[in-house]
């Protein structure tokens, strides 16, 4: 049986069209997929849950608007959880664009869902600091050298929540939402390993595999991509049923992810069928992957 070349070298625009449909249709129909937390996500939830109420939590938004669709749901779930538990949260970012992400939480989520929480008493925005990994190092060596005021310029001493924060170790845990460098890896290397503060958080699906080697010794837990966020949301709903009717972004967005993954699997199967049944024919003239394979064999 011969498979026509058009299937063997399917036009990428057709693939793009199929992916577009696989994303848009579930977004419109909004199917719900129930998830359950895996141990690597559950350990973050349990750590936040076990902390005594009023513990200081450091939440770093190490991402910009580009990766927000994947990381915003994690941020929301973590803020909901920490606020529900009564922890004191310091927002921070190592990305200049991260300020905008923090603002989305402090301006949109907190006033609506936690109107009783007050700025300076329950949460504070420490803003953006330049210096990448070096900034973390400075904070660990001497916290007040780098951060002596919040994002608005109010001295930390004038805010009840941060008046007695002098060192990084005054925080019970560090949470980072990571899109690249700097991110969780730097928090582990410069803060977790050196100051002994438990580090955990989430990363985009692309970044997550790089962080697995640190789990569980140096990284308490990890939410990998939208799936990780969805698992955290399900853990939150299980523990606090009041959130059952709240908008859970990751759970909603899992629909397009599920359909897209299934579509990619089908495309891979189609590609392989076409490859096997069409292999007796001539290979594509410009098949670069074939050429790369040949090069690999030469190595």
């Amino acid at each position: 049986m011969r498979i026509p070349d058009s299937i063997l070298h399917i036009d990428r625009r057709i693939i793009f069209l199929l992916i577009g449909a696989a994303v848009c249709i579930p977004l419109i129909l909004q199917p719900r997929f129930q998830d359950s937390p895996t141990p690597i996500v559950q350990s973050i939830f349990d750590t936040v849950e076990r902390l005594p109420s009023g513990s200081r939590v450091f939440l770093s938004f190490d991402y910009g608007p580009d990766t927000a669709p994947e990381l915003d749901p994690m941020a929301k779930a973590l803020v909901r959880h920490t606020m529900t538990r009564g922890h004191e949260v310091s927002f921070f970012t190592l990305f200049p664009e991260g300020l905008g992400q923090i603002k989305k939480i402090t301006d949109n989520l907190l006033p609506v869902e936690f109107p009783e929480k007050a700025y300076g008493r329950d949460f504070v925005n420490l803003g953006y600091k330049a210096g990448l990994g070096g900034a973390i190092n400075t904070m660990v060596v001497n916290f007040r050298t780098l951060i002596n005021a919040d994002a608005e310029g109010t001295p930390l001493d004038d805010l009840p929540m941060t008046a007695d924060v002098d060192e990084m170790v005054d925080y019970a845990i560090i949470l980072s939402l990571t899109a690249g460098d700097p991110g969780l890896k730097e928090w582990i290397q410069f803060a977790g390993d050196i100051a002994g503060i438990p580090v955990m958080g989430g990363g985009t699906a692309v970044v997550a595999p790089e962080l697995y080697p640190y789990y569980p010794q140096q990284l308490v837990g990890l939410m990998g991509g939208l799936k990780g966020a969805s698992e955290y949301e399900s853990a939150l709903v299980d523990r606090y049923p009041a959130y059952r009717n709240a908008t859970m972004d990751a759970t909603m967005r899992m629909g397009p992810q599920v359909v897209t993954h299934v579509l990619i699997v089908l495309l891979i199967l189609l590609g392989n069928l076409a490859y096997f049944f069409g292999r007796s024919g001539r290979p594509g003239r410009n098949d670069r992957t074939d050429r790369a394979d040949q090069a690999d064999r030469r190595r």
């Binding site: 692309v206 970044v207 595999p209 790089e210 670069r288 992957t289 050429r291 790369a292 090069a295």
Partner: peptide, 15 residues
């Protein structure tokens, strides 16, 4: 030397 990006390059580049 960014391991997460290596699979993407392997899939789309010749070397």
């Amino acid at each position: 030397a960014r391991p997460p990006q290596l699979p993407f390059f392997v899939a789309a580049c010749d070397y």
